[in-house]
Design a protein around this nucleic acid. Structure first.
Lengths: 255, 255
DNA sequence: CCAGTTATCTTTACATCGTAAAGATATCAG
DNA sequence: CTGATATCTTTACGATGTAAAGATAACTGG
């Protein structure tokens, strides 16, 4: 009941409910930017659809994020999104671009809030995982979906910026400048390692595949604690002078 | 042309083409194992569907792996698989279980072929990535699909065995025994690190997200070389005595 | 050896999805 | 005010997963 055959009417309480009749895109170009009308209420359907898509994604997850569901959520016909995004891939790509921007900002904030290089790396990694945990649907869209088109300018740019932030963070934690046009093998390996480690951890964690490890670990070990322990054994920055690794409390390797 | 509306007839050249009439599952139990009839031709539809599914997966990738496509490939009606696997999730889970077994065997072989602990870890990691590169569809099914049911005994068992192999490998490379019922935080972090690193690297590589890093790295750097460099900077087993890191050829960090 | 039972497979049907095409409608240009 | 255009709705089609009913073969018990 209450879930028989939607899709025709049944949604869309009133056709006059389309906000203030229309407005359309020329609104953005002709008048400045709907100067004083509704501060943070969406302007056009383009925006409304992205907003709806984000809600659907958070509510129903990646599999529920369909073109028709988004149209339903926004209160328009199921074919309306086509005109704005062309394609399911188009809409998902634009949404993923938003995700990458959010993601990049969260990472940058974490990086800025830490003081030392080592702390910066740790904070960035934790922010990476935290973002994915707080927005699993979005992270899945960004990194698991097979329906993204990275040729789209907005997505390309956003993901590129996010990557640049990562590279910069790794460079900072190594206390060296990262050139934007060339990398040494060392640097490439450092960046790839950091990204792989944190991305792999995130994926495994979101997929519940680390639960066994967490259960076998000492009582009360959380994902954050595990991540911290993981980073600790990787990050010990090569202060080649005094090689103070944490004392091996139960080491078995003679020499 | 030649691709208009399949799904009814048009496939299935002849209905009498169903191998040798029937045979069914009782074949496996009654007669021994079709002793001398067709050495490596499948016995029952269950097997035939899994075989067909693997072919479809390799040919058309994860998005092409649908129930109906598998039925088509096997030459049966689209509803036939239901009886054997109940569900799309059922079929995908069984197929993923096969993948995990293949995967585990590849890892074990690599591990066995190496001599020293360090080489074992390196070889296992390379085998991990190599398997994913050779079977991207299967790896995607195993680690990217959202339609798996790990409660299924075969999948649960296979993935568990694969994980156990991983844990054993990490333990060996640390030259310590891994208890199957408890882990120190150190051990948990080591296992999670190894898995995260190699899984993250694989996912990013398969998604083409490392291409920028590979392009920026020195001319001719391959994924394998990058992986090797990544592992080298992680694995240097704490020989706390002589800390011979490879000479930094173009380092920029003063001190 | 034969009739009934059961497992296996096919047909048919339905809701959903993405997408294309045609019709309706409101905004804008002149 | 009228025609052109952008935006949205209807309608339609092929594809998918799944359920239900019909058909068909193998198996069982006598």
């Amino acid at each position: 009941m209450a879930r028989l055959s939607r899709e025709h009417k049944a949604s869309r309480p009133a056709p006059a409910r389309t906000r203030r009749l229309v407005r359309t895109a020329s609104d953005r170009t002709a008048s400045k930017r709907r100067a004083s009308d509704a501060p943070y209420h969406h302007g056009d359907l383009h925006e409304a659809l992205l907003k709806a898509a984000e809600q659907v994604l958070e509510r129903d997850g990646l599999p529920g994020l369909t073109l028709r569901a988004v149209a339903r959520e926004a209160g328009v016909s199921h074919a309306a999104p086509t005109h704005h995004f062309g394609d399911l891939t188009g809409l998902l790509s634009e949404l993923a671009a938003i995700g990458f921007r959010q993601f990049g900002m969260a990472m940058a904030a974490a990086n800025a809030s830490a003081a030392t290089p080592g702390e910066k790396g740790m904070a960035s990694a934790k922010a990476y995982v935290a973002y994915a945990q707080e927005h699993p649907g979005m992270y899945g869209l960004m990194f698991r979906s097979e329906k993204l088109d990275y040729a789209r300018p907005s997505l390309h740019e956003a993901s590129e910026a996010s990557f640049a932030g990562l590279a910069r963070g790794v460079g900072a934690s190594r206390q060296e400048q990262i050139a934007s046009d060339a990398l040494s093998l060392e640097q490439a390996a450092a960046i790839a390692s950091a990204w792989s480690l944190v991305h792999g951890f995130t994926m495994l964690l979101l997929d519940g595949r680390l639960s066994k490890i967490l259960n076998l670990a000492p009582e009360g070990t959380t994902a954050e604690m595990l991540l911290t322990a993981m980073l600790r054994r990787t990050t010990p920055i090569r202060h080649a002078s005094h090689d103070a690794r944490r004392p091996p409390p139960q080491a078995g390797e003679a020499k």
